[in-house]
């Protein structure tokens, strides 16, 4: 069986609202869709021991991450009746208030998109080798860890 070419999920820097808006607009031609659901991960200005996070610098084991994103996509399509699904994740520096993860699922009906979106986001958090260095305002850093 021919191996399907893996999509590249990664985008350099923050994911812009224009990009997200255009992604929504592209679905106007897919008229079997009746419901979209979107998750946007935003970088939070956490305060840790008196210091405030100003940005996260993302790195990844890209080959394995794209493989994992692919496996998550396949498992999600298997489990839920979706028309389409898109995942984008940032690499490099994303400032607080900016978007670092964009997950977009679409289906003929609403119920499935609520469940599917949560499933995809939780799987990404648990299974994909992406690493985040939280940069504080004083330029010191610590490594983020998903809980």
């Amino acid at each position: 069986m021919e191996k399907k070419k893996l999509k590249n999920v990664f985008i350099n820097g923050a994911i812009s609202s224009e990009f997200i808006g255009e992604s929504i607009a592209k679905h106007q031609t897919k008229t079997s869709i009746g419901a979209h659901n979107i998750f946007l991960g935003q970088v939070r200005a956490d305060e840790i021991e008196g210091k405030t996070v100003s940005a996260i610098d993302y790195t990844a084991y890209e080959e394995m991450a794209n493989l994992k994103f692919h496996e998550i996509r396949e498992a999600t399509f298997e489990k839920y009746d979706l028309t389409c699904m898109h995942i984008y994740h940032s690499l490099g520096t994303v400032n607080i208030g900016e978007i670092c993860l964009f997950v977009f699922v679409s289906s003929p009906h609403r119920k499935v998109v609520f469940e599917a979106l949560e499933y995809v986001v939780e799987a990404i958090k648990a299974e994909v080798p992406v690493f985040g260095k939280e940069i504080f305002e004083d330029q010191t850093h610590q490594w983020k860890q998903n809980t």
């Binding site: 993302y58 994740h89 990404i124 648990a126 994909v128 080798p129 992406v130 985040g132």
Partner: peptide, 10 residues
């Protein structure tokens, strides 16, 4: 062989 610290995606 890759050594992977805790994941922090999203």
């Amino acid at each position: 062989v890759a050594l992977l610290p805790p994941f922090a995606g999203g």
